[in-house]
């Protein structure tokens, strides 16, 4: 910076081109200038929609009423408190998060360790890791809806072959819930595995060699070397996975449509239903604000964890 300021001063006597005057800016002004495009873009695509959402949540705005939007303050939030489906879908969402995030972490970790083994040809393992990740969520939901279908599904067929009578998966809230969680874990553990695998490859082999010399067993090596060094990768994977788990929509939507009844419906599905089917944009926005706050809380907690460990 100093050198460039110097050159500019020298050049002023020779009528410098206009653009070089930019280099005269102070560090702070330059920083603002350089950050501006990103900041403007972010406010357009993130800050504005979120602010607009929060704003709409204070209005009674339903396209089926034929009435113009009316400011109602916290009315939509009050409605939510008495709404049993809001509580049911929120609880389902939390439960899906609590089951599938650790589930995907454990399975993903196992897959990553497997993929990290010194196979001679590694691409088949890595490719099979990528496929579930690359599959669109709604396809995965449809495929598994067929797997678990009581009459045509492969799951009941396999059970029958082992002499276990098949069950009607989507007739029972618990079984339907289990089927959904299994599908989500299958779909998302490969994402966990990919991030963890990247983390694994940054751990120097020499550490394990040293541990071998010191006589540490495999298990000890895992807990003393692998796990602590993987922590940053795991936290990043967990943040992404938890936030997408809180937004779970596609898989239960395709598999059960929230049924039987509303027992497997999630908060995201309820938001979609209120806005897209019922056209109640006010209430739908209020629900979406709650989901946004929920995601924010989780992110803050994780960021705290990183900071204290970092």
């Amino acid at each position: 910076m100093t050198t460039s300021t110097l050159t500019t001063t020298q050049r002023i006597e020779k009528e410098p081109p206009a653009w070089t005057r930019m280099l005269d800016l102070s560090d702070r002004a330059l920083a603002v200038l350089l950050l501006a495009p990103a900041a403007i873009l972010l406010s357009l695509i993130i800050v504005y929609p979120v602010a607009r959402l929060a704003y709409t949540s204070f209005f009674s705005l339903s396209l089926t009423s034929g009435l113009p939007a009316e400011f109602v303050g916290l009315e939509n939030y009050k409605l939510m408190i008495d709404d049993p489906i809001f509580w049911e879908t929120t609880w389902n969402t939390v439960l899906i998060t609590l089951i599938t995030v650790p589930g995907a972490l454990v399975v993903g970790m196992a897959l990553a360790l497997l993929a990290n083994l010194p196979f001679r040809t590694q691409w088949p393992v890595r490719l099979s890791l990528l496929i579930p990740w690359a599959l669109p969520l709604s396809f995965a939901g449809l495929i598994f809806a067929w797997f678990f279908h009581s009459e045509y599904g492969v799951v009941n067929d396999v059970l029958n072959r082992f002499g276990i009578p098949g069950v009607i998966w989507f007739n029972s809230p618990n079984l339907a819930f289990a089927a959904i969680c299994l599908t989500i874990i299958w779909k998302t553990s490969s994402f966990m595995a990919l991030i963890i695998l990247a983390g694994l490859q940054t751990i120097p082999r020499s550490l394990y060699e040293a541990a071998d010399v010191d006589g540490a067993g495999r298990l000890r090596q895992f807990f003393e070397i692998t796990l602590p060094l993987l922590k940053p990768a795991i936290v990043v994977a967990l943040i992404f996975r938890t936030i997408t788990a809180l937004q779970t929509f596609d898989i239960p939507y395709m598999m059960t449509g929230g049924g039987p009844g509303t027992s497997t419906s999630t908060l995201a599905m309820y938001i979609h239903q209120n806005t897209v089917s019922f056209l109640d944009l006010g209430y739908g926005s209020a629900l979406a604000v709650v989901m946004f706050l929920l995601s924010m809380c989780v992110t803050v907690v994780y960021l705290r964890i990183i900071r204290t460990k970092g």
């Binding site: 989507f170 007739n171 029972s172 809230p173 929230g258 049924g259 039987p260 009844g261 509303t262 027992s263």
Partner: peptide
């Protein structure tokens, strides 16, 4: 959704 829940036995 209620008809569905009743028929599923929920």
């Amino acid at each position: 959704t209620t008809v569905n829940a009743v028929l599923a036995g929920v």
